[in-house]
Amino acid sequence: MDRRAFLSSAAAAALLGYMSGGQAAKAAPLGKVRELGVLRVAVYKDNRPWSWRKDGKLTGIDVDLAQALAKGLGVRADIAELVADESADDDLRNGVWKGGLLGFQPADIMLHVPFDRSFAARNDQVAIIAPYYRESFQFAAVKGEIDVNAPPTQYRGKRLAVEIDSIPDFYLIGTFGGILARDVVHFHGGTEAVTALTDGRADGALASRAQIEAVLHDSGATNIVRRTSPLPAFTSAGWDIGMAVKENSRNLGDAVETILAEMTQSGALKAIFERHGVAYAPAVAAG
């Protein structure tokens, strides 16, 4: 069976807990972390610019943030790369409260978790904390090829790069009566879509703002312009990104929130984003 774009329900998640053969390793609350001297942090595997391998070395905004949190707690960071499952709900199960089927040990804390009330409500095995960024989608194009602020119907006939099965994909294929459908070029990720733009393999790209900014920063491309007005009938207003700890690890969560608040205040958080070419945008929930 193919992996599904379905969400597993809370009931299914609870059932998996019930079905688990062995006792899953327990993620350590604050005292245990300090005692062991290690904070195990889960980040997504292959998630540029947040956590990815550059020339074999793990790097990215979330990787730097993980190091900073461990430093703040006075411990060493053990950063574990988690392969994304079908939904972020599954990732919380694999990464935080139960562990993976093939032996992935649960982390003390996971980064890059959507900070959203309904999402949190159906994932009550974890506490979702410390919102640290506001993400959103944006359109970018090669200067002279596309008038970025024109109605998208005028993008017709241009090569439009998107991540397959993403909101940008559905938007460009499905809206305006599908007149752009034949122009959409699909990539495995948003970063690849933006890279196609800077490589001359696409005329426009719709991807996350962080993906666009990081690729433009890393490539040094100067011929790319970004849309400034909202896309008509675009359905995602953006979302906040936070962290997750196991439900019974709230004291660890509190300590992390304190460290994050200090980093926000001192500008250390903003500096991490800038190091990777991304403009820091505070989470709406943090405001």
Binding site: F6, A84, P114
Partner: peptide, 18 residues
């Protein structure tokens, strides 16, 4: 259709089912 779904930490369009 699920209005609030997330994959790899990003918003996407999902379907809920029972």
């Amino acid at each position: 259709n699920e209005p609030i779904a997330y994959k790899k930490g990003a918003a996407y369009l999902g379907a809920g089912f029972t």
